Amino acid sequence: DEIHIHFNGVTIEFRGLTEEAKKALEEAIKRGASEEELKELARRLIK
């Protein structure tokens, strides 16, 4: 299970995320999180 985020022309790929983690990332994107914020969020979620 993986998710691809297209962000300002950059694709960020995450693997092994739970549904909750995906929802958290989607919410962050909707509120306009920066690419760095998304990566940091993903790091926290994957652990």
Rank of each mutant, 00 (worst) to 15 (best):
D1Q: 11
D1E: 11
D1C: 15
D1P: 10
D1G: 13
D1L: 14
D1I: 12
E2T: 15
E2M: 14
I3V: 08
I3H: 08
I3P: 05
H4P: 00
I5Y: 06
I5M: 05
I5Q: 01
H6D: 07
H6P: 00
H6E: 08
H6F: 03
F7C: 15
F7V: 15
F7L: 15
F7D: 02
N8W: 02
N8V: 02
N8Q: 08
N8D: 12
G9T: 01
G9M: 00
V10Q: 09
V10I: 13
V10R: 03
T11Y: 05
I12K: 00
I12W: 01
I12L: 02
I12H: 02
E13C: 11
E13M: 04
F14W: 03
F14N: 02
F14V: 15
F14D: 03
R15M: 13
R15D: 15
R15N: 14
R15H: 15
R15Q: 15
G16S: 10
L17N: 01
T18V: 04
E19T: 09
E19G: 11
E19H: 10
E20K: 07
E20P: 08
A21T: 11
A21K: 04
A21I: 14
A21C: 08
K22Y: 09
K22F: 12
K22P: 02
K22C: 06
K22G: 05
K23E: 09
A24S: 10
A24P: 04
A24V: 13
A24K: 10
L25Q: 00
L25F: 12
L25M: 07
L25H: 00
E26R: 11
E26S: 09
E26N: 10
E26D: 11
E27D: 11
E27A: 11
A28F: 10
A28W: 13
A28T: 04
A28K: 04
A28H: 06
I29N: 02
I29Q: 02
K30Y: 11
K30T: 12
K30M: 12
K30L: 08
R31E: 08
R31K: 11
R31C: 07
G32K: 05
A33R: 03
A33G: 06
A33L: 12
A33E: 04
S34T: 12
S34N: 10
S34Y: 06
S34V: 05
E35M: 15
E35N: 06
E35W: 14
E35T: 07
E35D: 09
E36S: 07
E36R: 08
E36C: 05
E37H: 06
E37R: 03
E37K: 04
E37S: 07
L38T: 01
L38R: 00
L38Y: 02
K39A: 12
K39F: 15
E40R: 05
E40W: 05
L41Q: 02
L41I: 10
L41K: 01
L41C: 04
A42P: 00
A42N: 03
A42V: 13
A42W: 07
A42K: 00
A42C: 05
R43L: 14
R43A: 13
R43E: 15
R43T: 14
R44H: 13
R44K: 11
L45D: 02
L45H: 07
I46R: 03
I46V: 09
I46T: 10
K47R: 09
K47Y: 04
K47G: 14
K47N: 08
